[in-house]
Structures are given as structure tokens and as C-alpha cells.
Design a protein around this nucleic acid. Sequence first.
DNA 1: GTAGTCTGTTAAGACTCTTACCGAATACGG
DNA 2: CCGTATTCGGTAAGAGTCTTAACAGACTAC
Lengths: 394, 394
Amino acid sequence: MSRRPGTPELLRAMNDRSAFEHLLAEGPLTRGRLGELTGLSKVTASQLVVRLQQRGLIEVVGTRSGGRGPSAELYAIRPGCTYAVGVDMVLDRIKAAVCGITGPVIAHTSRPTSNDDPVKVIHEVVAEVMGQAGVGLSELGQVVIGTTGVVDPGTGDVTFSFDLPMWHRGLHDALGKDLGCAVTIENDVNLAAIAEREEGAARDVADMVLFWVGRGIGAAVVLGGRLQRGASGAAGEIGYLPVPGAPLLDDVSSRDAHGQLGGSFQKLVGAGAVSELAERHGIAADGAAGAVRAALAAGSPADAFLNELAQRLAVGVAAVCAVVDPALVVLAGDIGAAGDERLCKLVSEALGHLVPVTPKVVPTAVREDPVLRGAVITAVDKSRDALLTSIAAS
Amino acid sequence: MSRRPGTPELLRAMNDRSAFEHLLAEGPLTRGRLGELTGLSKVTASQLVVRLQQRGLIEVVGTRSGGRGPSAELYAIRPGCTYAVGVDMVLDRIKAAVCGITGPVIAHTSRPTSNDDPVKVIHEVVAEVMGQAGVGLSELGQVVIGTTGVVDPGTGDVTFSFDLPMWHRGLHDALGKDLGCAVTIENDVNLAAIAEREEGAARDVADMVLFWVGRGIGAAVVLGGRLQRGASGAAGEIGYLPVPGAPLLDDVSSRDAHGQLGGSFQKLVGAGAVSELAERHGIAADGAAGAVRAALAAGSPADAFLNELAQRLAVGVAAVCAVVDPALVVLAGDIGAAGDERLCKLVSEALGHLVPVTPKVVPTAVREDPVLRGAVITAVDKSRDALLTSIAAS
DNA sequence: GTAGTCTGTTAAGACTCTTACCGAATACGG
DNA sequence: CCGTATTCGGTAAGAGTCTTAACAGACTAC
């Protein structure tokens, strides 16, 4: 229920917000165009521009001449309103990128992870990338950190993680205090899905699932245009999917032959299982993703391997499709990406025998640092939202 | 973007809507209380009441005396604003219930289904129930029809149905024309979930899954408080879940030994499979649900049967939990309902070995006509929404 | 019976939006 | 080269919604 009463100020806030969103989406605009887009009159659009300008949210970036009358001034969001940082923390490396509220990355960095306190590690990398960008830490509005493991929707903390034993409870708050800005910890696969939806293969798809097939197995579920995290943040933990072809789990905390936690689907298509399968088919390569690439390069002699891999993947995809019926399935992660169009086609064919729905199956279109991209996008999005609600409040 | 400009009228519409919602939720209210709830001043609340009264949406239903000052007038929604009808169509019976916008059912009926044109069948049952209620068909605002089968989110038609071969494409539009009001066709399991959320075991639970275990197998997925239908309306078709313990499907259009379409999970826990399992354990009863009831009554001798049934169910529940991580799982359908607390407990225990999440597993709390209840609730909800948007428009 | 309290109304004012009008700048056509 | 049409930005007047303040009347409490 909307607690706030419908006062005239609310109206102004709504219109300011709408104008801001149009400026973000459509780039520099004149007062007149802004009026058209928001549906407001010329006069009101002018007042609105003055307000936003006084707050330092927008600025004149030029004039648009060529038309009949006098040249109109072009207004655009001031990129330096706030800055947002995305962080991707994997087993042994930590990456970070910073950008202004308009989107483009202005600096990024990557360094090996030390075994230190995560607060210190993250503080250092954030400070470094902000320094590179030439922006003070005080102007930082949002930090989004991608990580393996499940994030508790209640506390925002990591409840457990395969790879990062140092991540303790209370980390979320500690980071927020340390950095002095809003901090969000998010599952890495979810961030990859956000990147895919923003600038990858899933643009404008409301119902989609991203399969991350790599060292770990995971999925991100987007339904009705919204990322679904589940009640305890464990949505998409498809490593635990009970599937035919691998024994049923008897103890949820057991590890597989390669030291990975997970259930029967993990045993079927985890990196270890894929390597093993490749070996059994006589394909020698470095790592599971390498094996897939080698198989693709080898042509028909490796068909049996790819078919079996596709068949295994299809079983997991089928389970997800039976539950949520997405319009699109994206295969990502290093193995998924390596499989490319060919593997997707095979999975799609196998899927047709298993379920009565026919989602498109495509490889990821975000080939460079999908998790970092997703983190940055999320950070920008959140900082925009914070700014807009601050407009509404004042 | 539906860019309605932020004009003062919008404000009024928002406040009218808010007041209307409060009246629906909290019953009869005085002008003063309405002001408090909406956050508006006394004066504005009064104006608002006058407006709604002039439109015939609300009426005085009494006075609240006993306080210090003069007795305040109590206003309530006029139930006769619009009427909504819910219809439940199963294999051989059709049920319907009608209610005003305030909710309570004022008439209901049930009759055997003839093999006629569905438009005629539905028209007849709607006319009958409206006649019983003493309301003209012209005052009907919404009809919601529950049915087995998948409903195409694009057209609102049934794309295929196990049991109702007469349902043709274009039925949705034909019904709308015939009845002269808004018509919605919805999957029966989804409607049961809506009933469960409104007045059953899932009140105030944002992320939940309802398992329908009966003649057919299905699930309804509610995430973030919203029912998720999937891209082609096939979300929750868990009969097709590939699970261990039953052979993988080779052809999606194949039928099982009992003439039912579906995949491996259907073969495991469909009514036919449950009957078979009961027979193998020496439990004789009429139908699968009867067998479950008999087993519960028999005590420990039937434990093996119940355990195996729970184990089978748990595998499907585990798959769903791995994908969407609900806070609550409701077992419904005649078999699920028959299993009651005991079966839920067994499923919950089995689930603990399979996935690292621990949703509550409970039996349905809507024991009477859950699908019809869901249809009625949905119809009322939609007619409320239509009324509210009509307020905003005028 | 009187005082106190609460209801509902009226009056004045604040805030937002709108239409109507105006002066100035710019491009186009003769 | 100059007049005219067009567009930009601004001002003024007005309509709609909300708010606070003050008041008349009804009802209870003592």
C-alpha cells in the first residue's frame, strides 16, 4: 500500500523522476523534447529543468541549431553526480571497474587476491580504481560485489560460499561502514544474467534463464523482467537438481570426486565431470572448456562427446523449463561459452524430446567479464535509483 | 512507457483509488479514519467520499456512535457495483459461483457437463448462477474460468488440454462476445494457488510453490508475490520434469500406461502410478487418494508405501526448490490433500537430503473447491482493478 | 445542565500544472 | 538583402488538488 499521501509535491517528484529517466535513456534533450516525452507542457518542462540544474543533476552540453527558430539548449545528465563501482571476486583474482551515472566505464583494474580480510581486500581495490579514475572516495555512491555463493536476501550477507571461506557474516555491514556508501553483494551468476539482459543475448526478454556451466554450476532465473533470487537467495542452485543419470544425493553437504559441493546435476555437468567425459572420448585438452573447444575444432570425430554433453545439459535445462518455462535459455560460463552455437543447437534438439516447450537456446553474447559487467550495470542502476528517490524526498 | 503526464487529476485518481482499496480491505470506515489511512486531510477525505458516493461506488451503511462527539457516518463499498463469476470446469462437472465486488459468494451451482460447445455450456451455467443471485447478466463485469491445460499468455486461449478436446482456439474471444464482459481463462492449478495465497496456507508468503498431485500433476509458481505463468504459459508443467527413478522421455507426445501425457515425474507420482504403488504394497482402496487415506489410517504397516510416495514427491519438490527456492511448498490436489500433515512431514524429511534449502512443506488449507475459490477470487480481483482504472480514467 | 469532544463544513492559501500571449533568434524564400 | 514563418524561452492568468485554521452543531460525560 502506498503510505505516502497524494500531495502535489508527489506529482513534482514523479515528473522530475520521469524527466531524469528520459534523459538517461535518450541522451541529451532540449526543453521542448523533454516536455513531449514526459507529456508535460513547455512551461512545466522549463521549471523542471531549472530545478534539476540547480541540484547539479543535469547540465547544458551544447545547442541544437539548424531548425527554424533560435537554437535550443541541450541538457544532459551530469556524469559526475555519483560514481558506481562493480567488483568481481573469483577464486584468485579480483577485478573492479568504476563509472559515472551515465554508464561508460572510466577506469578498471585487476589484481591477484591476497588471503587477507575481505574488507581490506575490497577497500584496496576500490580505492585503486577510484584513484585511477581521479575521483575521491567520498563521491562513491554504490558498490556491487559479485561472488560465488548464496546471498541471504534478508541480511545481504553471503550465507555460504564454496570458494571464499573468509567471507564472514556481517561482512555486508562492515563493507558499508568501511566504504561509506551503499554496498550490495550479489551472486555472480545473477550478475552475468543482468549483463546478458542489458547488453547481451537477452535484451528485451522478460522470461529467461541463464545457465552458468563452469567450475561451478548455477542458473539465474529472470521472470516477468525481474531477477528472482528465491526466499533464501538460493534460486538457481541447479547443481542440486536431482536428474537421471547420476545417483540421488544422500547428504547435502557431501562433495563430489572433484571436491565440489552439489547434487546429481553437478556430478553430471560440472567441470570435473566434463573433463572426465572428454577423456573417455579420447579428447585431450587443458581443462573442461578447452576440451569443448577442442571437440568443436575436431569436427565429426568428437560428435559423440558433444552429443553426450548436450544430452546431459538438456536434462537440466528441461527441468528448469518444466518449472518456469522461459522464452530464452542462455548458456554461459566458460564451458557454456566454449560450446557456442553448436552446443546450443544440440541442447535445443535434445530438449525437444524432453519437454513440450521450445525456448530458444543461445550462447552468451557477453564474452568479456560478464560478472564484472553485471556488477557495474547493477551498481549504476542502483545509484540511479538512489538519486531518483533522493529527488522525490527533497 | 505508459507516460501519462503527472497532472493534478492523476493525483485525485490515485487518492480515490487508495481510498477505495482501503475500504475494500478494512470494511466500513468513517471519513476521519479514511483520512488517516490514506494520509490525507479531513477536508480532502470528505471531498473524496462525496465523489465516490456520486459515482455509486460507495454508500452509507450506518453510523458509529459511542464516542464523545456526534456519531460519524460509516461508508462502505456498494457490493452491487459489479458482479464477478468464477467457473471451474473439470472432466465431467462444471461449477460456478457469483459474488459482488466485496467478496462473499451470493450464489453457486454445479451441474454435469454436457458434450456441447463450450461457449454454450459456459453461457448456460453463468446465466443459471446469475439468475439464482437475482442479478441481470448486464451487470456482470468479469468471468474467470479455471481449466486444465496450458493457457497462452498472448491470446488468452487454451493451447492444449488433456481433458477438453472441444476447446478450440478463439474460445476466449467467443466467450467474451457471448457474455458481453471480460473473460479470463486460467490454469486450474494456478487458481488453486491463488486461493491458497488468499485464504489458505500461503497467506503473506511471497515465494511459494503449490504442488497439485491428483489425476494430473502440476505446480503453480508464485515468486515475488506474483504468479509466474512462463513465456508460453507452461510454467509449472512439472509432469515433464526429468527425474531419477523413471525413464527419460523420448517423445513429448507419448502417453503413459494410464493414458496421461507427461514426462518422467508424471510416471512417478501421477494417480495411476500412485494406485499401482499402493497395490504393490498391498493397500486396497478406491483410487489413488483413497489409497493414501487408507494408508494413513492403517498406521505403521503402510509406512513403506507412504515413505516411497514421499520420496518420489520429494524428488520433484527438490527440483523445483533448486530452481526457484520457495519459502513454502503446499501439497494440494486430491492426493496431496489426502496425504495431509503426515505426508508433508515425510516429504520435508526426504527433501532435507536432496537440497540445501528448507522450505516449509504443508498440506493445502483450502479443502473445498480450491479451483473454484481461486477463480472467484481472481474474478473479484480483476473486477476491482477494472473499476479502479475506470475511476482513474474519468 | 454544562463542559468537553468529536464530526463535518467553510474559508484562505500553497503547490502543481495548463493555456494564452509575447519578444527575440534563426532559416528560408523572394 | 530583407520580410516572414517558425521556434525558443519567458510571463501572466487560471484551474485543480491539497493543506491549515476556524467554526457550527451533535453527542457524551459528569
